[in-house]
């Protein structure tokens, strides 16, 4: 694949916008302690305050500072997102590439299992499991990664199958290269754009599901989460607190997901050249 992924994303307006959004979110997450004076979990005796110079976005029902909750919420969201994104790539690559190279019965079994998981709505499984085990951050990442490698494995297998037929791989084979060597040297390095798209998909889904579970009240109560903020703010929707409580949390979550969508859309045009050129928005 001789299209530069970096160039492609930079050329697309929305791709650039996506990267800027993501960088802002990462900055908010990393520098959260510098950007706010309050511990997001620390309760105070002043609940439901309106925004002021001391509390930029006011306080919530137990007197926690909403601005610092918003910043630390980015931490939770991105940690779960990136954790799942990275972790789910491992089985995706492992099963995708091995399926393509080994083929036969092994390929059939792996792909049937992957397909089976693709048709089961992942978020429902996540709700059911979370209802029982109330996962903390680490367990949640493991759970979501275990549920989200299947689509990636399929895409990677398809790409690896077409790479496998290429001249340089036949050449490597005639020189006596083993399957593992070919996978490591010739297939995985050429998966570039697919890995990025799959990674972003994984991050996006995980960010969404983390917020969703927290919204349902089955997230980790020790974590600050945009989902929890929206859930708490919803109970006070008859007051005008939604302006500085509900909306910032919802907008932060939506913007993060939109940024990721923009990046993956720009990266997809690398995968499907028919969509390139005139149609890049």
């Amino acid at each position: 694949m001789h299209i530069s992924l970096k160039k492609e994303i930079k050329q697309s307006q929305s791709g650039k916008a996506g990267i800027i959004i993501l960088l802002v979110m990462i900055a908010a997450a990393v520098f959260a302690p510098l950007l706010s004076r309050y511990d997001p979990m620390q309760q105070s005796t002043a609940p439901l305050l309106a925004p002021s110079f001391t509390h930029w976005l006011g306080t919530n029902q137990v007197g926690q500072d909403i601005w610092s909750q918003l910043l630390y919420g980015a931490r939770t969201s991105l940690m779960v997102g990136f954790g799942v994104g990275v972790l789910s790539l491992i089985p995706s690559i492992l099963f995708g590439v091995s399926s393509a190279l080994i083929g036969g019965i092994y390929d059939k079994i792996v792909m049937r299992i992957a397909d089976a998981f693709i048709v089961i709505p992942m978020i429902m499984v996540a709700i059911l499991v979370a209802a029982y085990i109330r996962p903390d951050l680490f367990v949640l990442v493991l759970l979501l990664a275990a549920l989200s490698w299947q689509g990636g494995a399929r895409m990677i297998r398809a790409q690896a199958l077409s790479l496998k037929e290429m001249g340089h791989i036949s050449a490597a084979r005639t020189f006596g290269a083993g399957l593992f060597y070919i996978a490591r040297k010739h297939i995985v390095p050429d998966l570039g754009p697919i890995l990025l798209v799959e990674f972003i998909y994984g991050v996006k889904r995980a960010v969404f599901i983390e917020a969703g579970l927290a919204f349902l009240g089955i997230g980790d109560p020790m974590l600050v989460s945009w989902g929890t903020m929206m859930r708490d703010a919803m109970k006070f929707s008859y007051l005008n607190v939604w302006v500085w409580w509900l909306v910032p949390a919802g907008v932060a979550l939506s913007t993060t997901i939109i940024g990721l969508t923009f990046i993956s859309h720009a990266a997809e045009s690398v995968l499907d050249p028919r969509l390139r050129g005139e149609v890049v928005a």
Binding site: S14, F208, A211, G212, F215, M230, M234, S237, W242, L246, V247, G250, L253, S254, T255, T256, I257, I258, G259, L260, T261, F262, H265, V279, A281
Partner: peptide, 26 residues
Amino acid sequence: IDRAMLAGLMSLNGFPDFFLGLVLLV
């Protein structure tokens, strides 16, 4: 029009259904 629709709908896609619901409700 195409670009506006593409950017607009891709952005809408990023809104979790429950946040959209909350906004509509409010």
